[in-house]
Every structure is written in C-alpha cells, then in structure tokens.
Amino acid sequence: MLRLESVTKRYPTGDMALRDIDLTVPQGQVMALIGPSGAGKSTLIRCINRLVEPTAGEIWLGDQEITRLSARSLRHMRRRIGMIFQEYALVERLTVMENVLSGQLGYVNFWQSWFRRFPQPIVDEAFRLLHRVGLPDFPDKRADALSGGQRQRVGIARALLQNPELLLVDEPTASLDPKTARQIMRLITELAHERGLAVIINIHDVPLAQQFAQRIVGLRAGEIVYDGPPDGLISEVLTDIYGEEDWSTAAEDDNAAATLPTAIEAR
C-alpha cells in the first residue's frame, strides 16, 4: 500500500539523512522502525507526508505518487495519513475536543475552522473516538491539564479522526513511563488491527518494538540494515544497527541486559 522507491534526503547542511531507501508496507501491517538517534527515522516518516521534502525518489500511497503533488493535492493526500508525535504536539491552550476535531481540518473550510463549526457526524465520531481511547469524561478540559499518557491518547484520537489509511507514529512512548508506554503501544496496535491500517512506528525501545510490531526495520546512517520479523533481532543484528562498541558494552552490562531479554535469549 505504501511504497518508497530509492528515497534520498540530503539536508542543506550536506548531511545525508536517507540514502536510497526502498521500502514497502502492505495494508494492515504494523512496522517498527528502530535505529540509533540520527539514523534518519524521523526524517523517513516526515518525508512520507512531506513535512520534510525528500531530495530524490518516489513515494507511492496506493496509486498516487506523493513527492510531485501540488500544494493542494498534498493537503488532500495528508488527510489520508495520520500522524502521532513524541511530545504529543497538542495545541495546549485548546480543549481536548478542539484538539481531536483538528484532525478534520483538512476537510472543513476556513470559516468552519475559525468558528469551530464542525459537522455533527464528525462531532459524534470524535466522541466515539475519545471513548475508544479511554478519555470519555473530559472533552472540555484544556489539553495542558492532562497527564502525558492522556495527552498521547488525545493525539491518537486526533490522528484517527482523519480516518487515515496510514498511520505515522514518531517515538510515541519516549516521554512516557514504562506502564503507560505499553498501554499506548497496545492501543495503537489494537486500533490499527480494528481499522486495517498500515502503521510505521519510530521507536527506541527495542523490546517494546518486538512485542507489538509484526515487522522490524533497522535503520543506520540513513540505510536499511535489517528488515524482518521481531525474533530475528539477534545480537549480531543489533550490533549492525546500533554499532559495535555501544552494543557490546550494553549487552555485557547486567542492567542493560535486563531490559533486552529477547536479545539475551537469542544468544
């Protein structure tokens, strides 16, 4: 459903963030993108909805090519791609409901957004989604009054209100405690299965990725170095992704080993 063909991104500073990325994500697949900081994970998912402009290559969503779209068609394309952010990216001074409804901004006209006059079926759907993500009680609360986990749930509801075909998720759990992180990952993957969405999740936490994703792609210095099932992440592969020195010291460290049980089992 999503197909990247030799996508390359070079930043104006000369840094090569992505080199010739080829990647296909079928419908309904939850794919985790792992790799060290600076490997190009964020750049990759931002290239897909062109928050970052790729330098070269083609990106196909269904039968439409994204990189050559005009501004107007790009906005229409973005409605089909939901995005969930690390720091939630809510508009803090707006209410929960306003934040969720902002998922529909690609569909309503300017005056409707200015006066917050969203069609009733959309408001119904927003209430349903808030209920589904576990926040039925405070649509009128301001977003800055919520906890981190609650904010991320609002972020998920906002992305789903777009009724997307593809979900881009950027480090959804990096600012959350371990328990909340698991709940959020479970919620995202459940919703993806319910709706048959393709999902790309950037994530630092390898065990969490292994637990919730069907497929793992490892990125290193802008290149794909691993693409396979979660249980294929043996320590040699992790060394490949994260680099020899860092990995070997972390694996021999007892504390780090405790957080990477599957990697130890695989040895």
Partner: peptide, 12 residues
C-alpha cells in the same frame, strides 16, 4: 510541534 501536527492533518 503543534503547528507541524496541524499541518500533517492536511489543513490549509
């Protein structure tokens, strides 16, 4: 960041 999020919804 919120501006990026609103942009990602396809808003004008």
């Amino acid at each position: 960041l919120p501006v990026e999020a609103i942009t990602a919804t396809g808003a004008s």
